[in-house]
Lab assay of single mutants.
Amino acid sequence: SRYQRVDEALPPNWEARIDSHGRIFYVDHVNRTTTWQRPTAPPAP
Rank of each mutant, 00 (worst) to 15 (best):
T35A: 05
V6R: 13
D19A: 03
T33H: 12
R32V: 03
Y26Q: 02
A41F: 05
E15K: 03
S1R: 10
P11I: 01
P39S: 04
Q4R: 09
E15L: 02
S20K: 14
F25S: 07
P43Q: 09
A41R: 10
Q37G: 05
R2V: 07
G22Y: 00
L10S: 02
E15Y: 00
V30Q: 03
P43L: 11
Y3T: 12
V30G: 08
I24Y: 06
F25Y: 13
N31G: 10
D7I: 01
Q4V: 03
E8W: 04
V6N: 09
F25A: 04
A41W: 09
H21C: 10
N31P: 01
E15W: 00
P11L: 04
R2C: 02
D19T: 05
H29Q: 14
Q4E: 13
A16G: 06
W36M: 09
V30H: 08
I24W: 05
F25L: 05
D19K: 00
R17E: 04
Y3S: 13
V27Q: 06
D7H: 07
N31C: 08
Y3Q: 12
E8T: 12
P42C: 05
N13Q: 15
E8P: 08
P11T: 03
V6A: 09
L10P: 02
Q4Y: 02
Y3P: 13
R23M: 09
L10C: 05
R23W: 04
W36R: 07
T34H: 09
F25V: 03
W14Y: 07
P11Q: 04
S20P: 13
A41D: 10
P39F: 14
Y26D: 03
V27M: 10
P12K: 09
N13C: 08
L10E: 02
F25R: 02
P11Y: 02
A9E: 13
A9R: 11
N31D: 04
E15P: 01
R17I: 08
E8A: 13
N13V: 00
A44C: 11
T40D: 12
A44K: 13
T34E: 08
A9Y: 11
N31L: 07
S1T: 15
V6I: 14
Y3D: 15
T33E: 09
T33W: 07
T33P: 00
V27F: 11
R5V: 13
L10H: 03
Q37V: 14
A44W: 04
I18D: 06
R5C: 12
P42G: 09
N13D: 11
T33L: 11
R5Q: 15
S1P: 05
P42V: 11
A41V: 12
A41H: 12
S1D: 14
S20V: 09
Q4G: 08
V6W: 02
R38C: 05
R17S: 06
P11V: 02
A9L: 11
R32A: 09
F25K: 02
V27T: 03
A41T: 12
H21V: 07
P43G: 10
A9W: 07
T35R: 02
Y26R: 01
P11K: 06
R32S: 12
P43N: 11
A44F: 03
Y3A: 07
T34Q: 08
I18L: 14
S20I: 03
Q37C: 12
D28L: 00
T35M: 02
S1W: 09
P39W: 00
E8K: 10
V27D: 01
I24D: 04
E8F: 08
T35L: 01
T35S: 09
Q37L: 11
H21S: 11
Q4M: 12
T35N: 11
T34L: 02
V27L: 11
D19L: 00
R2W: 03
R17W: 07
R32D: 14
P39A: 01
S20A: 13
R38K: 13
T34I: 01
W14R: 02
T40A: 13
P43D: 13
E8H: 06
R5K: 15
I24A: 06
R17A: 09
T35F: 00
P11H: 03
H29R: 11
Q4T: 15
Q37M: 13
N31E: 10
P12Q: 08
T33F: 04
P12V: 06
P42M: 13
Q37E: 14
E8Q: 12
T33R: 11
P11S: 02
S1A: 14
V6M: 15
V6K: 15
E8Y: 05
W36A: 07
P12N: 10
T33K: 08
A9D: 15
T34G: 02
D7M: 04
H29S: 10
E15F: 00
Y3W: 01
R32L: 07
P11W: 01
P42D: 08
D28T: 00
R5W: 02
Q37D: 02
R23C: 08
R23A: 13
T34N: 07
W14V: 07
E8I: 04
R23G: 08
R32M: 05
R2M: 12
R5I: 13
T34F: 01
P45H: 05
N31W: 01
A16C: 03
I18K: 14
A41L: 09
R5N: 14
A9F: 07
W36Q: 10
H21D: 12
P43W: 07
E8R: 05
W36G: 07
V27A: 06
R38L: 05
R5P: 15
T35Y: 05
L10K: 04
R38P: 08
A16K: 07
T40G: 11
D28M: 00
R5S: 15
T40R: 11
H21W: 07
P12E: 15
S20D: 15
D28V: 00
Q37F: 14
P42S: 10
R5A: 14
S1G: 14
V27E: 07
G22P: 00
P39L: 00
W36P: 07
R32K: 13
T35Q: 09
R2S: 11
N13L: 04
H29T: 14
H21M: 12
E15A: 04
T35I: 01
P39Q: 02
H21G: 10
D28K: 01
A16T: 05
H21E: 15
S1Y: 15
H29A: 08
P42E: 11
T33V: 13
L10G: 02
V30D: 07
R2E: 14
F25Q: 05
N31T: 14
S20R: 10
P12D: 06
E8N: 10
R17D: 03
D7Q: 10
N13Y: 12
W14H: 00
P12C: 02
Q37R: 10
A44I: 14
Y3F: 15
I24E: 08
G22L: 00
L10F: 03
V30W: 06
A9Q: 14
P12L: 05
P11M: 05
A9P: 11
T40V: 10
R5M: 15
H29M: 14
Q4N: 14
A41K: 09
S20Q: 13
P42K: 09
R38W: 01
P12T: 09
P42Y: 12
Q37Y: 13
W14D: 09
Y3R: 08
R32E: 10
G22E: 06
V27W: 04
T34Y: 03
A16P: 05
R17L: 08
F25E: 06
P45R: 12
A41S: 09
D28Q: 00
E15Q: 06
G22K: 04
V6S: 14
P42A: 10
P45I: 10
E8G: 10
T35D: 02
P12G: 07
E8C: 15
H21L: 10
E15M: 05
P45A: 15
Q37H: 15
P43C: 11
V6Q: 15
I24H: 08
E8M: 10
H29W: 03
R23Q: 13
A44V: 13
T40L: 10
R38T: 07
A9C: 09
N13W: 04
A16I: 00
N31R: 10
P12R: 05
D28E: 00
Y26W: 02
Q4K: 11
W14S: 05
P42N: 08
Y3M: 14
R38G: 02
A9S: 13
I24S: 03
L10R: 01
N31V: 02
R2L: 05
V6H: 15
H21K: 06
A41N: 12
P11C: 01
P39H: 01
A44S: 14
P39R: 01
P11G: 04
P12A: 10
G22T: 00
D19R: 00
V6G: 14
W36K: 10
D28G: 00
Y26V: 00
N13R: 06
N13T: 05
A16S: 09
A44H: 06
P43E: 11
A44N: 09
V6C: 02
N31M: 08
P43F: 07
T35W: 00
E15H: 04
T40W: 06
I18A: 14
V30K: 10
N13A: 06
P42R: 06
T35V: 04
W36S: 09
V30M: 09
R38H: 15
S1V: 13
R2A: 09
